[in-house]
């Protein structure tokens, strides 16, 4: 998943080349092993964006979706969403 805005947000450019390589490798290797293609993850990501957008103010690039391996060897779909606040709409309960 290329997600340059989020990468910058998370400070990847501040990482060392070694740490960056390791993080990227762990990402692709887990994708290769799970046999869930990144194109599918991208579709999931886009739909999460649509759902979250209904309720929260977010940037399109502020949703990150990735696979992580759990202790028991199963794959977990992990999403990280950066929000700038609640959308003021009908149907959304006020705080």
């Amino acid at each position: 998943m290329s997600n340059s805005w989020l990468n910058r947000f998370l400070g990847r450019n501040a990482q060392t080349p070694r740490a960056c390589a390791k993080e990227r490798l762990l990402g692709v290797v887990i994708e290769d092993r799970s046999a869930i293609p990144s194109s599918v993850l991208e579709l999931v990501r886009k739909e999460i964006v649509e759902v979250v957008k209904k309720y929260l103010i977010i940037d399109d690039q502020a949703v990150d979706v990735k696979l992580e391996k759990d202790e028991d060897g199963t794959y977990a779909l992990v999403s990280h969403v950066v929000s700038r606040g609640v959308r003021k709409n009908e149907g959304i309960p006020a705080a």
């Binding site: 060392t16 080349p17 070694r18 740490a19 390589a21 390791k22 490798l25 762990l26 290797v29």
Partner: peptide
């Protein structure tokens, strides 16, 4: 290069694999 944090270490490679 590993010490200057520019290259994957042997341990990094093992962790990935």
């Amino acid at each position: 290069m590993v010490k200057s944090q520019d290259m994957l270490s042997v341990e990094d490679v093992q962790e990935v694999l």
